[in-house]
Design a protein around this nucleic acid. Sequence first.
DNA 1: TATGAATGAGCGTTCATTCAT
DNA 2: GATGAATGAACGCTCATTCAT
Lengths: 192, 192, 192, 192
Amino acid sequence: MAAAKGEESKKKLLKAAEKLFAEKGFQSTKVSEIVAHAGLTQAAFYLYFASKEEILQHLLSEFEQQLGNFGDAGKKAGDFYPGRVQPYVKDQFVQLFSFLGKNPSLTKIALHHGKHGDRIREKIVAQIAGNMKENQNKGIVKKEIDPQIASEAIVAVTERLIDRYLWNGEKTKEELGAQAAQIFLHGILNES
Amino acid sequence: MAAAKGEESKKKLLKAAEKLFAEKGFQSTKVSEIVAHAGLTQAAFYLYFASKEEILQHLLSEFEQQLGNFGDAGKKAGDFYPGRVQPYVKDQFVQLFSFLGKNPSLTKIALHHGKHGDRIREKIVAQIAGNMKENQNKGIVKKEIDPQIASEAIVAVTERLIDRYLWNGEKTKEELGAQAAQIFLHGILNES
Amino acid sequence: MAAAKGEESKKKLLKAAEKLFAEKGFQSTKVSEIVAHAGLTQAAFYLYFASKEEILQHLLSEFEQQLGNFGDAGKKAGDFYPGRVQPYVKDQFVQLFSFLGKNPSLTKIALHHGKHGDRIREKIVAQIAGNMKENQNKGIVKKEIDPQIASEAIVAVTERLIDRYLWNGEKTKEELGAQAAQIFLHGILNES
Amino acid sequence: MAAAKGEESKKKLLKAAEKLFAEKGFQSTKVSEIVAHAGLTQAAFYLYFASKEEILQHLLSEFEQQLGNFGDAGKKAGDFYPGRVQPYVKDQFVQLFSFLGKNPSLTKIALHHGKHGDRIREKIVAQIAGNMKENQNKGIVKKEIDPQIASEAIVAVTERLIDRYLWNGEKTKEELGAQAAQIFLHGILNES
DNA sequence: TATGAATGAGCGTTCATTCAT
DNA sequence: GATGAATGAACGCTCATTCAT
């Protein structure tokens, strides 16, 4: 009934790797450190993962899976705001924030890791850009905005604020979400 | 007329290191690769730099030096827009863009490199936040904006757009600057 | 029954290092040579010792530990020769010889290695000088002798004779001990 | 009239090498250090010496040359003490001391350097042993003494006392010579 | 399921030595 | 006679990975 002992070890390794990869980066994290944090030996590592690279992939695909759900949630959420445009857009924004903030270390790893990061980021950006284009057609979003660029900006900011303020508990997800939404939706300037 | 041969080699090494550090990160870049790109032997590297770490520092301090000038420029620029607030703010924005865009690889290295990156980023953010606070007091920037957060956002976006669009020539500095300014100054939404 | 395999390898490395350090000195001995003699790879070396320096320290402290015992032995031995002074002094002399001769390579390494060697030699010299001073007070040793210098001389000779004659089996410990005692106790000249 | 400039540089290099070899040993002394002490460049070194090894040989042969003179001096000195045996022997002893003490660093280098050191030491030992054997035949030196061993002892002590007390000026050549002679000629024990 | 022991390949660094000027 | 610049070869050390038990 209890999870097989092996499965537990595998989880410990994944947790350790996630923490360390996020803290020090993939290259700088040694297999020896991962197993030390997991309370196992180096040989045990290779019982569960073929290589250091593979445990990263495992983490990354875990993240990508959750990413799929996010997309669906976004779609569905649209239906709940018939007619009221601003709350809808704002809510989508907060959702992204909430989603990426749920797993800050995974987010950091996923978006920072060269090739893989690019692919994943592209996915998120595309999703947001798609939504934005729709909203542009509906007249909600300004015509002058390049959805591609704006989406990149949104992701970059989300990523950064999570890393800077959420990670260490300096701000809450809600505070950050509100601020980010405020900035992106209305800009920082007073209307003259 | 010809620059001392040694100085040339040093520059070649710096150029190569800059390129590679930006492309693959510090850890993943091997000294052997740097010297290969510079057309020298490994031993020659240590004629000019005490360690791989030191060439990074060299690059970093080069960047920080330019950073100082950027701050001064920002201050002076303020005087040129008496009464016209928006162009002033926008211009400042574009300047940051222009400044960081002038040396994309150095920017990437500087802001991505753990401890050092944090310090440098903090410097830039503080400078922008300072300006923003002033403009907030003057009623130019919205009261609800947290200058700290907004500045982090601005830097994050600038960094990302440079890396994504400028690096490969997909967009020009001006295009990006305009788009970013647009987003940050007025937001993406149409006024309803 | 069998000693743990790792412990065996460690011992092999220590034996090899001892031999080579004694033969060619610390600096001239390469880690590659040590492991070759031990039948291991270079990486294995660092499984047991953090650095080349550390294996030297290990050897040195092993020697110093034995050194402590030597001091005690000397003290106790004094009690066994009540009233008969010459055999007592001679025996102490032979003991030093026997002690250092038990591990010629370790002795060579220990006394030849700069800072460390100086400290260890000082220890031995001080011990002998202490004894000698006592015997001087008892009227056994000549007043004109400077115990410090005489002790340095004794150690130097012991060291050299071991290295020259014991190492290659040309003389036995007893022969050397007898000759050295003879020289130091009564000198080389006939009484005229 | 002035010595050629090249000859001066060569001398500077020899002086520097002598000092450094004595202080830190041959292996641990880098060519870069030698030239730094001599105020020259590394390339200049190879104008005068084919290799690091060669400058050592140069130093060594310089020492060996002086050694020849020492042997002759010993022989001649014998004639000046007709009938008075002890002063003669003692004087020879002091001469060795004086000779080796004249160039402590060269002495240290010469006697410490493996193969070469062995050859040179052998030469000195043989010379002393030869004299001692003569004196043994004349009844001056005890029959029981093995001249070979005694000579090794004498050289070892001389070498050590020079290194320990002369080098830093703690004792003078004369003090050391007297003490050493005292020990070796008459031993440390009181006649009971 | 897990480990203790070992390794191959490579990395950053050093150093005696060379050569064009 | 001397130098600035460069190098080949090796060294100490690290690390992801393997394998017998």
